[in-house]
Design a protein around this nucleic acid. Structure first.
Lengths: 333, 333
DNA sequence: CACCAAAATGTCAGCGCTGTCATCTTATAG
DNA sequence: CTATAAGATGACAGCGCTGACATTTTGGTG
């Protein structure tokens, strides 16, 4: 830093100002310094910055999610936000059911001194955890919490619209009896996806039939059970919309065992576009969740809270998209 | 730290010595100080440590792997090693084919100042990268590199044995014509798995038939193509061993399309125990790769290099295990 | 018990940066 | 053209720790 200062003919403090994007630096000075910084490829020493400014320049990403595909997308998104703003990322897989969760976290916070954290479901509903963060004044951002009306900073996608669109896709194929498998109650997506299902029916003047709605909990097994229940109805559905891909995979298994051919006798639609969707036979029509983008926005939102002189971010709304593959087709005549 | 020193009646330097596990501290002093540390729940300030000692206490985990399941296991293992030794983890997904890989990495190293890195395939074969690390004196550990005889610190599992065992499992079911789908050439596992296959045949006096060996590249699609080729032989195999689960999933798809029932007419065996193995119908017999343990050992090995006063680790050999599920069964009579 | 080397402990500067506050420069009003 | 405030820059201490070196303590020796 002193090299830069000398070459630019300013004090190291001014270089610091430029590095930290502080105001009250004349534009030509800023440019001059920035030029030298680029030339010398100067990178501020993170440890020194942290020590002097008493902030770690670290953010934590806490998750308790069985889906590794979800996790890697999450990480990729948050990393993108971190990298472009000089933040480091501390990842922390945890177990929401574990009583020691909080004490583990305290240890982690004590040793890493993270400036803020990002929480994903189901941690977003963990009152004890949220209270702890509140009390200790640790800024946080929630990704897809159940309650999206709260005042806490949060990001989420409009699953309702996405679900509606994919049910519409089924309706366009002529389906009228469409089964729906609910997700775990405590996840925000569950309710929204169900709502989208109902909206699609409504818009197409198809009567809602509660017999066609079965509970699930996002696991493969629950999908299989739910499908068995649906397919044994007197008037079984011609299409099933599962609230996630694991349950859709379960539906496929049930169909195979009942010798029901997908998509000729039954259309199946999932949600999330997990890798498994591509490996099933037939491949699964599903909804691509922009997890990575969501996570990036969460990261930016957090940085905005942390930085004194943050750039303004436009956190565009993120859209989910229906991916049509082989598991959906016209209703059997 | 000063609090601890005062309470223990020693200088802060001695506390530092205890914290860093340095020798030349009398045992009773060490215990006394450690007791106060525990009581006060003292955590050394990482930034100050890094700044003063000129090391970041950070290690990097570099990977370019499409499988998110692999990645999360990897991370879990390395994190375990890091957490128990006061190290932080910087994760860095990268693209081995990208020409900018090195320059990105230089940036990363410049900003995070990682003390060492862990590389996974295929980065383990990237000469440019390895040279760069060598030249810049950045310690590294390789996970499952192609060449396990080199002098670089590395960890790997004995895929040969695991493959041999699962082929034995097929032979025990009475299979004699067993197809084998090779993995990508440049991955260490490919050759070892093939070797295990050949060894199993040999030990059971089954003649090796090159017509039963088909190339693949670890992708779903290549598995499907390979299976089509195998199943259209005049004397098709009664079992197929695929070098990973994605290809095994492709085999299942090919079987479904050719109306060959698994496991009644064809047994299928995968490798890696990826999540998809559980979601296929029938569920897939495969080999569980102890990736997490492997990664933990890699982390420990790296720390050993980095720490001046490292504890000694016993890096026990890690064993892969055959997981028998539904996709394998007795040969059809 | 004096002596000495080795072991144990302490002293203190300084790692590279930022916060605080002092100083200098500029723009604007009168 | 001066007065004044706001804007821009600089000087310097100190963040919490460790490395180098100084000092004290210990235990073994003759």
């Amino acid at each position: 830093m002193q090299d830069v200062a000398d070459l630019a003919g300013v004090s190291s403090k001014t270089v610091s100002r430029v590095v930290n994007n502080e105001p009250k630096v004349r534009n030509d000075t800023r440019e001059k310094v920035q030029k030298i910084i680029n030339e010398l490829n100067f990178q501020p020493n993170k440890s020194a910055q942290s020590l002097a400014a008493d902030r770690s320049l670290l953010m934590g990403l806490l998750y308790d999610n069985p889906s590794s595909a979800y996790i890697t997308q999450l990480q990729a998104g948050v990393l993108a936000a971190c990298n472009s703003h000089g933040y480091g990322l501390v990842i922390h897989p945890c177990d929401n059911e574990d009583d020691a969760l909080l004490s583990n976290l305290q240890l982690l916070l004590a040793s890493s001194r993270m400036d803020g954290v990002i929480l994903t479901p189901p941690l977003t509903e963990n009152k004890v955890l949220l209270d702890y963060l509140d009390v200790n004044n640790i800024p946080f951002v929630l990704i897809s919490p159940l309650d999206q009306e709260q005042s806490t900073p949060l990001v989420y996608t409009d699953d309702t619209l996405a679900a509606k669109q994919s049910v519409q896709h089924l309706i366009d194929f002529g389906h009228k009896r469409i089964g729906f498998i609910l997700g775990a109650r405590q996840r925000s997506g569950s309710e929204m996806r169900f709502l989208g299902y109902k909206k699609a029916l409504e818009e197409n003047q198809i009567a809602f039939d509660s017999a066609l709605v079965v509970e699930g909990d996002f696991t493969f097994e629950s999908g299989e059970l739910a499908a068995q229940q649906l397919l044994r109805l007197d008037q079984p559905p011609t299409a099933i919309f599962a609230s996630n891909d694991y349950m859709a995979a379960g539906v496929m298994k049930a169909a195979i065992h009942l010798r029901i051919s997908v998509p000729y006798e039954l259309s199946v639609c999932g949600f999330d576009d997990l890798p498994v969707a591509r490996y099933l036979t037939p491949t699964l029509t599903t909804v691509q969740h922009p997890v990575s983008l969501l996570a990036e926005n969460a990261g930016k939102l957090l940085i905005k809270q942390l930085k004194k002189y943050a750039d303004a971010f436009e956190l565009n709304e993120v859209h989910a998209e229906v991916i049509v593959r082989e598991s959906t087709g016209p209703v059997k005549v």
